[in-house]
Design a binder for these strands. Structure first.
Lengths: 260, 260
DNA sequence: GCTATCGTTCCGTCATGTGGAACGTTGTTC
DNA sequence: GAACAACGTTCCACATGACGGAACGATAGC
């Protein structure tokens, strides 16, 4: 289809010739994934669609108030209306609702950044986060995904998942060269996690994470809570304290969720 | 929750015969507005569309993973993927980013529920909230809208808005019988708010709210922070303390935002 | 058992989305 | 200052895909 020789790794070929709706969401996904507003040409290139097609879709989205166009630069970005749409989904989420108070308290007693994650396929999804008042520069954001085996929260959940092995293998296969995944070692580690009740990881360099699962109703983990801190801030004593608070928080929360 | 679905005024006539995309979003909006999963018939009635049309749209959304169908009940609901889409919008929002730490601190020192709102048309939009650890039963949720003149946060913003009068009038006209809006009294009140720097309201019965604007860059309020508490918990002394903390928090935040 | 309601599928018609190409605008280079 | 390039927008003939009525199946209620 392309008359031009080289298309960078742009695509996401939108596979077959699809209809408006899938393309509309592809546009929105592209827009929301980009940190800055995007130009039309960037979108067409990213999506592999015609200029006129993308333009028409954008015009429709602007009419619906889901997209706005910067008057000067002409760049497009998603509006808060899109956020409103999604926000109503999560406020109904039972885990998120139940966790809020516990996260707040755990953040207070540890002084570090705490997160709530659930499993989404082979990834973990960050449902909520309360950042440490002390300066840090984490980049994991609420609503983002990370392959489960890379994070403490993911390990805590996988340790109680029947298909953990498959997840490890799929993730190992899917991850590029620089970050190899040692499936055998992780299998052993998950066993340890299951025994001692919490997981550790260092997904981001210089940051250590501790996480424990929320074991409510059934043998699988409904979610996990994690505490993240700069490695140099956590000595052995601090580690002990964090884990203690983490485990008691998760136990309390599991009890409450179980009662619902 | 009792009468959650307003049957009589059901429509939202979708005006003219529109295309797929607007209707698709209408479906999503209806789904996310409803606290519980919806049946197909409820959706068709709510939207005034044909069964087959809604069904087709839902099938498309399910294929895109934005909607799921409960296997037993057959009811439809939006998935977390929709939330993910919107979540990325707000994490880029400068106000929300800047406010996070301040909200947390304000929640800590007051012990009450604090919220961050911005103006959206004639409404305020709840961007963030940190709930009080003590038991309360507020129902304003993140991502929801409320007519600005009804809330403390809205008054704080309107007090510095050039078109405040118009907002008051439109809102008074739009609001039904039970909750009348006294435009004249509110006009006077906005003047007071402007002078003393904070606003008060009792949008929900038994709950008092205090709010102050974030005056960063320019004469208009970029946002407002509010503190809400059960009326019986706030005596004169507590009121003073809350307002003091509130004003200093907003001033600090405005300074930081202005520097960005 | 029969009937009312709901969800799903089918299909002929026609509205609408489609992509190429032409046009207008901005900003960069020599 | 002219020529060019990249980008955004508009236009149009064509056929794809959306539309809604109706028919079909499956439940639940009386």
């Amino acid at each position: 289809m392309s008359t031009k020789g080289n298309e960078p790794m742009s695509a996401e070929p939108v596979s077959t010739t699809e209809g408006v709706v899938p393309r509309t969401f592809a546009v929105l996904e592209a827009l929301t994934r980009s940190p800055e507003p995007m130009r039309l040409s960037a979108l067409t290139l990213r999506l592999g669609l015609q200029k006129s097609t993308v333009h028409r879709i954008l015009a429709g989205l602007i009419g619906l108030d889901y997209v706005q166009q910067n008057a000067e630069t002409g760049c497009y970005s998603a509006t808060l209306k899109l956020w409103e749409l999604g926000a109503n989904v999560i406020t109904e989420h039972p885990i998120k609702r139940a966790a809020s108070g516990f996260l707040q308290e755990l953040q207070r007693v540890t002084g570090e950044t705490v997160s709530l994650v659930i499993r989404a396929g082979d990834d973990v999804l960050y449902l909520d986060k309360m950042i440490s008042p002390r300066p840090i520069r984490f980049t994991t954001r609420i609503g983002s995904r990370v392959p489960a085996p890379l994070t403490a929260g993911g390990k805590a959940i996988l340790a109680h998942a029947p298909d953990a092995q498959a997840v490890l293998e799929r993730t190992a296969a899917g991850i590029g060269g620089k970050r190899r995944l040692d499936v055998a070692a992780l299998t052993v580690e998950l066993q340890e996690v299951r025994e001692r009740g919490y997981a550790m990881a260092s997904y981001q360099p210089g940051v250590v994470g501790f996480a424990a699962p929320i074991m409510a109703r059934g043998p699988e983990a409904a979610a996990a809570i994690s505490v993240s801190a700069p490695a140099e801030r956590v000595d052995e004593k601090g580690r002990q304290e964090i884990i203690e608070h983490l485990l008691s928080t998760c136990a309390s929360m599991a009890e409450q969720v179980g009662r619902l």
